[in-house]
């Protein structure tokens, strides 16, 4: 029964929480994106548990997992795979790359060249890979967690705007609190090992995704989400003063798709079967922050997309 899966979702969060200390919002948003069928871009300094999160998710959800460390010399075929001649056989055989996993961790994605980045991003968008004219479907579910380091800019290739748009969420990974650090130290420097139990399967994730799409959205709630999106457009009447002054390009229609889809999943994760205004507010920031492109004035003034979105949320009337 599909509804039993919803009960499982709570247990999945608990199980991840056994391995992941703190970072509750990061876990929630990542799980939300996964259940919504989207991809996540994690941004944070090294050592905050991004890899651990991806690995734990794969274990709990019992899905295949690959990690790709992006470097400048990484080639597209290193990701997608290539055709090889098998010994003793006079023909090519496709050798799948690391992208052929249900959960792919693209570590430091901004270190690879745009050509290599686009190979992965094409897979994210299409759900398949084409090598030498032959198309190979990726496993389903297919979920990419990409990370990027905000500090090191030398030798990096920032993701173009069009490619950033492919990510459902951009999640900022904060530093753990003092209490969380204490727990991390205790957990990781002792002798005890956390054994993660698989609680869901790939087909169940797809089933939850289908179920989430049935969650109804009231007219006024949808209107609220739409208002938030159009408020990011500098020329729109609903645009806030901050948007008019600092935003160069607002969010695309993918933004509203991301908001609604992830809000539906958020409602399910909360044990509700309808989308609330609070759900929309919760997902608006991660769904929109990488879709706003600020002008030079904003960069010079230290204005972040988060501040702009916060202003929009504060100024948008519900209903």
């Amino acid at each position: 029964m599909d509804l039993q899966l919803i009960d499982k979702l709570g247990r999945v969060k608990e199980e991840i929480g056994r391995a992941m200390v703190g970072q509750q919002e990061v876990v929630d948003l990542t799980l939300t994106a996964l259940l919504a069928g989207g991809h996540v871009l994690l941004e944070g300094v090294p050592g905050l548990g991004k890899t651990l999160l991806a690995r734990t998710l794969a274990q709990v959800l019992d899905i295949s997992y690959n990690r790709i460390q992006f470097t400048p010399d990484l080639m597209p075929s290193d990701i997608t795979g290539t055709n090889l001649i098998r010994a003793g056989r006079d023909e090519f055989e496709f050798h799948p790359g690391p992208v052929f996993a249900s959960l792919v961790l693209a570590d430091e994605i901004n270190r690879a060249t745009p050509k290599t980045q686009s190979a992965l991003l094409e897979s994210m968008q299409e759900g398949r890979v084409t090598v030498f004219g032959e198309t190979h479907d990726l496993p389903r579910p297919f979920f990419v967690i990409a990370t990027q380091n905000p500090l090191e800019m030398e030798g990096t290739y920032p993701l173009p705007e069009a490619q950033l748009d492919r990510f459902l969420f951009k999640v900022l990974v904060p530093y753990p609190s003092l209490e969380e650090l204490r727990e991390i130290v205790t957990l990781t420097t002792g002798t005890s090992q956390v054994e993660i139990q698989p609680l869901m399967t790939g087909p169940e994730i797809l089933a939850v995704n289908r179920l989430a799409r049935e969650v109804p959205v009231a007219e006024k709630v949808l209107e609220y989400a739409l208002k938030i999106l159009v408020a990011t457009h500098p020329g729109n009447a609903l645009a806030t003063p901050g948007v008019r002054q600092y935003v160069q390009v607002g969010a695309s229609p993918r933004g509203i798709q991301s908001i609604i889809l992830s809000a539906r999943v958020t409602a399910l994760l909360a044990g509700r079967f309808n989308v609330s205004f609070a759900d929309i507010e919760k997902v608006s920031l991660p769904a929109l922050r990488h879709r706003l492109f600020l002008n030079f004035e904003a960069q010079g003034s230290g204005i972040s997309p988060d501040a702009i979105i916060a202003e929009i949320l504060a100024g948008t009337e519900r209903g």
């Binding site: 599909d2 509804l3 179920l211 049935e214 969650v215 109804p216 959205v217 009231a218 007219e219 006024k220 709630v221 509700r272 079967f273 309808n274 989308v275 609330s276 205004f277 609070a278």
Partner: peptide, 21 residues
């Protein structure tokens, strides 16, 4: 949390999720 309006707007609808709602 918008339960009432969602339910009223979908009062004639069918489906697992609406039943659960």
């Amino acid at each position: 949390q918008e339960r009432v309006q969602t339910l009223v707007e979908n009062s004639g609808g069918q489906g697992v999720i609406l039943q659960e709602l």
